[in-house]
Design a protein around this nucleic acid. Sequence first.
DNA 1: TTTATTCTACTAGATTTGTAGTAGATGATG
DNA 2: CATCATCTACTACAAATCTAGTAGAATAAA
Lengths: 123, 123
Amino acid sequence: MKQMTKAEEQVMQILWDLKESNVRSIVDKFDTPKPAYTTVATVLKVLEKKGFVTKVPQGKTHLFLPQISKEEYSGHQMGSLLKDYFNGSFSKMASFFAKENNLSVTELEEMIEMTKKEINKKK
Amino acid sequence: MKQMTKAEEQVMQILWDLKESNVRSIVDKFDTPKPAYTTVATVLKVLEKKGFVTKVPQGKTHLFLPQISKEEYSGHQMGSLLKDYFNGSFSKMASFFAKENNLSVTELEEMIEMTKKEINKKK
DNA sequence: TTTATTCTACTAGATTTGTAGTAGATGATG
DNA sequence: CATCATCTACTACAAATCTAGTAGAATAAA
C-alpha cells in the first residue's frame, strides 16, 4: 500500500476526526500558523490520487471523505513496524514496550486486564 | 528525531544486521536486483548527514557503523505510531492487534505468558 | 610497472514532497 | 447590476528522495 507522507498524514488525521470535510474546515483545524488554503487543497489532491480520499461536489465546493479508515491504515502501519522491527512478533513488541517503560509484570498484568475488557467490548 | 526514508531504512536494517560494514557488503546483502554500489554509498552519506551512521577509515575503504540502535529507533517509531493512532495507549494498540488477528482471550493470555518470560529474560 | 579492479567524491537527473500564488468561476451583498 | 469573497484548477518552485554515472585515487594482479 502507498504510504502517506507527514504532511498528508496530518491532513488525514484531521479528516478522520471530522469524518468528512471541505478544505476550509480542515485549514481551520490546524494550529497557527495555519497553512494556506491552497496548500491543504494540494495535499488533498495528492491524497486523492493516492486513493486515500474521495471528494463529492457539495454546493459550490467539495466534500472530502476518507477512503481508508484510520483503523485500516494504522493496521498496515503496525504491520510494517512489527515486520521490520520485531520479527513480526507482537509479544516481542509488547515486552519491548514493557521494558522501555519500566513496567513490572504486575503492571503488565493490569494493562492486560484492560486489554481483555477492550476485546470483549469490541466483540 | 529525523525520520529515515524507505530506502534509508532498508540500508539501515542491513547495517544493523551486520553490526558494521563497508559499502560492498551491504550491496551484497540486497536481493537481486541489487542497487548500484554508488546508490548505496549515496544513501549511506545521507544517513551520515542525518546522524544515523558514522564511518571510520579502514584500509582503502570505510567502515560504517550505526549511530543509533535498532531498539532506540524502533522505540521512537512505536512512540509515534502509538501517539498518532492509538492515543498513546498501548492497551488500545494491543486490543486492536488482538481483534485484527482474531485472537481470543485465551490466545492473548498465552501471548502474555511469553511476554512475561521475555521481560524476565531481559531483566 | 603497466593494467585491471575497486573505492570515494562529486555530479546529475527524474520524481516526490511541501508550500503557496494566480486566474478565472461562482456565489453573496449592497 | 457591481463589487466583494471564496472556491477550484492550474502553475511554480525549492527541497528532498531515489537512483546511478563519471573521474580520479588507491590498490592488486600480471
